[in-house]
Design a binder for these strands. Structure first.
Lengths: 109, 109
DNA sequence: TCATTTTATTGTAATATTGCAATCAAATAA
DNA sequence: TTATTTGATTGCAATATTACAATAAAATGA
């Protein structure tokens, strides 16, 4: 089907899965890493950092934007992208919520 | 194409994207959350926790297993699944590596 | 105005993912 | 042995994702 069922899952589960999905491509990871590294807003030079054509990069940027992870500021002909700091912290908190459920001593296989 | 290009990305980027992909479905998040919550190995009762048919759950379990996140221990007719503790810590560290790159004060839009 | 630059969108093709019914495989129970 | 139980696999069908060429849209420059 290719269509993910959403009924029967909690908001929390759907939200976490959606974030993970936004991160589930090396190009999008690379974009985020680059934005974090330069620590500022940058325009389409991102294309030069990636082994992909401009339209493809544009699509990945759109997905990150739709997920709220990055935001773009139009400045004349060019756009400045950067990490949405507040959202980034939220995402971190959501992942940590998952990680922290882990208990060290388990009666496990 | 549907085929993710892998050349031109770092091992790190590919690894993170792969983990994110494994987490990019509410059913797989739900499975992980459940395994973390019960804090032990459980068998196919997981199916009862999810709004999906048994074969579908089995597929999701397989994806999590392929990603190394969970492991299954065969015990007679049934299988006991649980979180792979070492791998789980690794994943946490990898995500934190990404999150920690974030610097609070940015000259940003 | 017309060309240039920068980014987004559209069109198209190939592959991947998701879901379930049906079925199989293996271990135990009767 | 035969039935039952448990979980994996297979075989579709439908939708999603990825990628790039071509094109569009919008602002600036000549």
């Amino acid at each position: 089907m290719g269509l993910t069922k959403t009924t029967g899952f909690t908001e929390d589960q759907l939200a976490l899965a959606a974030i993970a999905k936004a991160l589930a491509h090396p190009a999008r990871i690379a974009i985020i890493q680059h934005l974090l590294k330069v620590n500022q807003c940058i325009g389409g030079q991102i294309v030069d950092e990636l082994p992909l054509a401009q339209p493809t990069v544009s699509r990945h940027l759109k997905e990150l934007k739709d997920a709220g992870i990055i935001k773009g500021d139009i400045e004349g002909v060019r756009i400045n992208y950067c990490i949405d700091a507040i959202r980034w912290r939220e995402i971190q908190a959501q992942f940590n919520g998952l990680f922290d459920t882990f208990v060290a001593d388990r009666d496990c296989c």
